[in-house]
Design a binder for these strands. Structure first.
Length: 219
DNA sequence: GCATAGAATCGTCAACCACG
DNA sequence: CGTGGTTGACGATTCTATGC
């Protein structure tokens, strides 16, 4: 769509599909750090450690804070399992207390699981990611206990719980995607305003020039 | 450095809608 | 009519800017 075409009505779906023309400089916790932003580099932007830290942060955010990352679970050295709220993922991953030995993140698009075995390795950008099982087969069977047997009340409870978790996970990701699209839509509108304002200014100047020309001719 | 207000972001719920 | 996707609303949490 031509951003300068003001005569076309704006439909939400069309705008959502369009790539934003205005790239807003943002650096909020939920978004990836802008390369031009030095806020995360500390006091010395040229410092090598600081640069590496920024790379690590970008990697961590890419993996755990964007739309591809689902629920996040850690297993500590004593075997305890911890569910980590989405908002705490990034901080947890980059400054982990208690040295977890394993971390899991469900990959929504293909149902695989990302596994990090070593905090230091992962935060250094060398995170190992591989497929463990699909939720539809391995994990769900492990949770159900005995596939093929008659459903017991306990089984039904577990099944209901699993369904709820699945629904929550999907809705979580849907909300993320919805917000992303909304942001994009707003950016498109802002860009449209900028283009139309510029166009308006040009037309006003053009009109003024034509008026001057006309006045000189009639004199 | 600390306290605080406001902004930003997130997960969840509920309502709505489209589809099979 | 059940199911799943989308999105507004809400409360919780985190981040950021500002004043002291």
């Amino acid at each position: 769509m031509d951003a300068g075409d003001a005569s076309q009505p704006i439909t939400q779906s069309a705008e959502y599909e369009q790539a934003p023309l205005v790239i807003c400089k943002e650096n909020t916790k939920g978004d990836l750090p802008d390369s031009s932003t030095s806020a995360h580099l500390g006091d010395s932007p040229n410092d090598e450690d600081a640069k590496q830290k920024l790379d690590v942060e970008i990697s961590a955010r890419n993996i755990f804070n964007n739309s591809n990352a689902g629920p996040f679970i850690s297993v500590n050295q004593s075997g305890g399992v911890q569910f980590i709220p989405c908002q705490q993922r990034y901080d947890t991953f980059t400054s982990w207390p208690g040295s977890p030995i394993m971390q899991y993140a469900v990959h929504s698009s293909n149902g695989t699981y990302i596994v990090s075995e070593d905090k230091g390795q992962a935060t250094a950008g060398g995170m190992s990611a591989y497929q463990i099982s699909s939720p539809a087969s391995g994990l769900s069977q492990a949770m159900d206990g005995s596939p093929g047997s008659l459903p017991s009340p306990q089984h039904l409870t577990v099944e209901a719980s699993r369904k709820r978790e699945l629904r929550l996970m999907k809705n979580r990701e849907a909300a993320r995607e919805c917000r992303r699209k909304k942001k994009e839509y707003v950016k498109c509108l802002e860009n449209r305003v900028a283009v139309l304002e510029k166009q308006n200014k040009t037309l006003i100047e053009e009109l003024k020039a034509l008026k001057d020309l006309y006045c000189h001719k009639t004199e």
